[in-house]
C-alpha cells in the first residue's frame, strides 16, 4: 500500500487544479482507500488563486484541509509564495516552471520543476498543464498503481467530453516521463 498523501494543488482559477485533484482522489476511490477532496470556494474561484486539498490514507481522515502537505503542485507564483514553507521535510514539490519564476531552494524538500505549460503548448495539449503535473507527481510519489491512475482519468472525463480523453491520457504520460 502506498504511503499517505497529503496534497495541496494550487494555481489560478481556470488552470484546472480542482480537476487535477479530482483525478488523484478518484485513484484513491478506485483503490478503496480513505479519500477527501476539499476545494477552495468563493471569491478566489472567480479569477484569483484557487487551490484544493486532497488526502489519500489508509486511516480515517480527520481534517480534509491540508495544512502540512507532503506534496505540493504549484501552477503560479502567488501559490508558490503562499505554500512553499508549508511542505513538510521529505515532501515533494511539483512546479510549473513556465509560470513560476522564483522557486525556493530547499534541502528537505524534493523540488521537481518542469515547464508544464510550455510542454502542453508544444505538444498540442493546450490547457492540460495540470494533467502533465499530475503525471509528474505520480512519477515522484507513486500515490497509486499505474493502471489505477489511467482508470481514474477515464472516470474523470465526462461522457460529453469523451473526445478529450486521448489528449488527457497523453498529457498524463508526458508528465510521467518528464
Amino acid at each position: 500500500m502506498a504511503r499517505d498523501l497529503s496534497l495541496i494543488l494550487a494555481g489560478f482559477g481556470g488552470q484546472g487544479v480542482l480537476f487535477a485533484g479530482k483525478i488523484i482522489a478518484t485513484a484513491g476511490l478506485i483503490e478503496d482507500r480513505e479519500v477527501s477532496w476539499l476545494p477552495s470556494y468563493g471569491p478566489e474561484m472567480r479569477g484569483g488563486t484557487a487551490n484544493c486539498s486532497v488526502t489519500l490514507s489508509d486511516d480515517p481522515i480527520g481534517s480534509p484541509l491540508v495544512t502540512a502537505p507532503n506534496a505540493l503542485v504549484v501552477m503560479n507564483q502567488p501559490s508558490m509564495d503562499k505554500f512553499d514553507t508549508a511542505v513538510v521535510p521529505g515532501g515533494v514539490m511539483v512546479v510549473d516552471s513556465t509560470l513560476v519564476q522564483r522557486i525556493p531552494d530547499s534541502e528537505d524538500v524534493c523540488v521537481c520543476a518542469i515547464p508544464a505549460t510550455e510542454m502542453a503548448e508544444e505538444n498540442n495539449m493546450k490547457g492540460l498543464a495540470n494533467v502533465i503535473l499530475v503525471g509528474k507527481l505520480f512519477a515522484e510519489t507513486h500515490f497509486c498503481e499505474e493502471e489505477t491512475l489511467f482508470a481514474a482519468m477515464e472516470k474523470c472525463v465526462p461522457a460529453r467530453k469523451r473526445h478529450l480523453l486521448d489528449a488527457n491520457m497523453a498529457a498524463l504520460k508526458l508528465g510521467m516521463q518528464a
Binding site: K22, G28, V35, S36, W37, L38, P39, Y41, P64
Partner: peptide, 10 residues
Amino acid sequence: DGMLGQMMEP
C-alpha cells in the same frame, strides 16, 4: 457546514 458541503469523499 461549508466544509462538509463542498468536500468530496467516497
